[in-house]
Design a protein around this nucleic acid. Sequence first.
DNA 1: CAGTATCCTCCTGGATACTG
DNA 2: CAGTATCCAGGAGGATACTG
Lengths: 128, 128
Amino acid sequence: MGVFIRPGNVFLADCPARLAIELLADKWSVVVIYGLSQGPRRHNELKALIGGVSSKVLAQTMRRLQRHGLVGRSALPEQPSITQYELTPLGQTLVEPVEMLSRWAERHGSDVLEAHGEQTDAVAVTSG
Amino acid sequence: MGVFIRPGNVFLADCPARLAIELLADKWSVVVIYGLSQGPRRHNELKALIGGVSSKVLAQTMRRLQRHGLVGRSALPEQPSITQYELTPLGQTLVEPVEMLSRWAERHGSDVLEAHGEQTDAVAVTSG
DNA sequence: CAGTATCCTCCTGGATACTG
DNA sequence: CAGTATCCAGGAGGATACTG
């Protein structure tokens, strides 16, 4: 039996679906979720895995994802401290879409780069 | 036979795959591509379809996607003018990932909203 | 190790008005 | 119809230094 509940769609402003898309529309969220798809990771593991991200921005990103229920965070009150991030069940539902996106990027990234600046309009000429 | 060419991966800074992800990391790109997945659309058709987008920002988004080879643009020199946008073959390769993301958002968007602000760390207590 | 604090810059994106 | 011009605010995100 298929589920046909549609709590809005991405074309409607301010509906949950649209807000969910906007949650992922930043530089790091997709990559972070992809990085967590294999299992829990610590802060510095993620930082080492994800090239170019700073400690500050990574922590920011993690907190946003945590606030929206995609990522869980557990901290051991050790010294030095140990933190673990992992996908929540809700976050797990994103693994498949995010993996598809990432695989697309790895296959077609170079095409996108090469296309840069080469585009021209197809101007149709009026006949007669 | 599978293709195993990997022009970088999304974890590497400044590699094409990462840049491709960043190309989509804005408020409108995913929704626009989803909106074009059924076929060509005119400027005002897209504007009507996509709630909340302004003419300016839509045009901006279309130009960026065009520059990177995901969207083609054809203009008839009519008065009033007629413009058509459609996915390029490269853009078509994004339809499946983008549809997955959108369907995820429509299914789980409300969960993401409800989760907002309810998150707490799972603080493990040291035993002994 | 896992962050914060601070500062700063760029860019996205919204509002409004105008054009061929 | 399909934009552009202009102005503007906010926030993402980078650099650096510091902390428990």
